[in-house]
Design a protein around this nucleic acid. Structure first.
Length: 466
RNA sequence: GGUGGGGUGGCUGAGUGGUUGAAAGCACCGGUCUUGAAAACCGGCAUGGGCCAUUAGGUCCAUCUCGGGUUCGAAUCCCGACCCCACCGCCA
């Protein structure tokens, strides 16, 4: 959520920000609503102050008179009643007026709330302007000595590659048919060594982020209430993307939503808390199952393990003080962690500076990490794919946008409450990461070598198949 | 699923219609004392918002889970929602 005070002092910044992100939201309307509501509120508070003043001076009198009334009779009683009536009349008139103002205010409130939640965080000035992912800018590439993505797979390894879809079929690692039978399109079943490899990369990634980088391991809910989705900034914009469990329609207290990332649970953890400043930064990591409806992605990446409704992900978040330099430093650090992990797995990757149009509502800045997938991309002369980078990670910097919604604060040196800054990044998402692993590590005989880094979590196995 | 009990400040916990934004304790901050620390003692200590001053602050409004209601006046009474706890039943 944006800071309303900032909106008042510089609405143009938010108008431009929404435009650059390609998000349609009526910022001027929000500004106008804010003005109207403040005027109403001021008026109402004035009336209420008057009411309070009057009732403070007449209240005790009324109480006293009512006490006397009990023992009074005849003419004395009538006089007392008259006196009480007069005293009671004064605040009663104000009451109606206050109620009217309150009603006017209540009429505007829902629109104001909805609009405020919809205004995106403006992108940072140094984020390149652009409309779609095509406008993202490559800022770095890396590859191991034994594989250069600039050359063809055959040039690198001496034989034509299979796609991961062919590999998992031939090696019996995944059953798409059974997944679809049970749960519908974009579902799958990991079988045998496929499941073991999946678990091995997850375990490797969680061990890596906790043991080597000091993140605290957590297991968090993946079924959460709406407040948690709104607080973490996934709602309202991403409502279509989340599975919805309608518990209220069957008598439950409230509906629930399946989370699309462990970020929700990690960030929701401290919702409505005032954190000890000395405890910052907080570094949390979780491995959790992620659920995504992929609404609007119909026809896109329909085959294979790339775009699926359910997967597992190791996620990292950092909650730090409200300091831009610190925030930026953590962003770099979190990207560095992922680079180190991919280098350990010896997977070629590149870093992309996302353009304004590719940023979500809650991000000021986002760097995507894409891994090289030989079975992806346009077909070559032989009718086989020539390879392409595919997104495997995404590192976001959010300033206080998320913590403001979550009401997550700490006390600064002056004792003032300040909203924390937050950041998040994928550590590793599987089975998507299995695509580059299987495709990169395949051998001419159809087997797949297990990356050295994963062997300890694969019971020492050196290869799959063959 | 059944039956009870309960939601008050950072925490514990008083408070059943009228200076109660809220006792007390703990925690925290400042001071006295001390070579230093602890103890003791003294003092301070909620949050959000509007307006004014913007260096300090002043002032008003709201807030005792949330939303309605009763009342001149609600932490206190009524209704609803949500949440939590205990016991029983079932159960990975």
């Amino acid at each position: 959520m944006i800071d309303v005070k900032q909106l008042r002092s510089d609405p143009q910044r938010f108008i431009d920000g929404a435009r650059d992100k390609g998000i349609d939201v009526d910022v001027p309307r929000l500004v106008k609503l804010d003005e109207q509501m403040r005027a109403l509120k001021t008026k109402m508070e004035e009336r209420r102050a008057e009411q309070n003043r009057i009732s403070k001076e007449t209240g005790p009198q009324i109480g006293k008179l009512k006490g006397q009334l009990k023992s009074a009779s005849g003419q004395a009683k009538a006089a007392l009643e008259k006196q009480i009536r007069e005293l009671e009349e004064r605040p009663a008139r104000l009451k109606g007026e206050i109620q009217g103002l309150g009603e006017s205010l209540a009429k505007l409130q829902p629109e104001f709330d909805a609009l405020l939640l919809s205004v995106p965080l403006p992108p940072d000035p140094d984020v390149p302007k652009g409309k779609t992912a095509d406008d993202n800018i490559e800022i770095k590439t890396w590859h191991p000595k034994w594989f250069d993505p600039k050359k063809s797979f055959k040039q690198n390894k001496g034989f034509a590659p299979k796609t991961h879809i062919e590999l998992v079929r031939d090696l019996g690692l995944v059953s798409f048919e059974r997944g679809v039978k049970m749960a519908g399109t974009r579902h799958y079943v990991l079988t045998g060594e496929g499941m073991r490899l999946h678990q091995a990369v997850l375990r490797f990634a969680l061990d890596f982020i906790t043991t080597e980088h000091g993140f605290k391991a957590m297991s968090v809910p993946v079924i959460v209430r709406q407040e948690c989705m709104v607080g973490t900034g996934f709602f309202p914009a991403g409502r279509e993307q989340a599975y919805h469990i309608e518990e209220t329609s069957r008598g439950g207290g409230h509906d629930l939503y399946l989370t699309g990332t462990g970020e929700v649970g990690l960030m929701g953890f401290h919702q409505d808390e005032i954190l000890d400043a000395h405890s910052l930064p907080l570094k949390y990591a979780t491995v959790s199952t992620c659920f995504r409806r992929e609404a609007g992605a119909a026809g896109k990446d329909t085959a294979g393990l790339y775009r699926i409704h359910q997967f597992d992900k190791v996620e990292q978040v950092v909650i730090c003080g409200a300091d831009e330099a610190e925030s930026r430093a953590w962003h770099k650090k979190m990207i560095g962690i992922v680079e180190e992990l991919l280098q350990r797995l010896e997977l070629p990757y590149r870093l992309l500076q996302c353009c304004t149009g590719d940023l979500g509502p809650k991000n000021a800045d986002m760097i995507d990490v894409e891994s090289w997938m030989p079975g992806r991309g346009p077909d070559g002369a032989d009718g086989r794919p020539t390879g392409a980078y595919g997104e495997t990670h995404s590192a976001s910097r959010l300033y206080d946008f998320q913590c403001r919604r979550l009401n997550m604060r700490y006390k600064d040196e002056k004792g003032a409450s300040v909203f924390c800054h937050s950041l998040n990044n994928t550590v590793l998402a599987s089975p998507r990461i299995l695509i580059p692993i299987l495709e990169m590590y395949q051998n001419q005989d159809g087997s797949v070598t297990v990356p050295t880094a994963l062997r300890p979590s694969m019971g020492g196995a050196q290869r799959i198949g063959g």
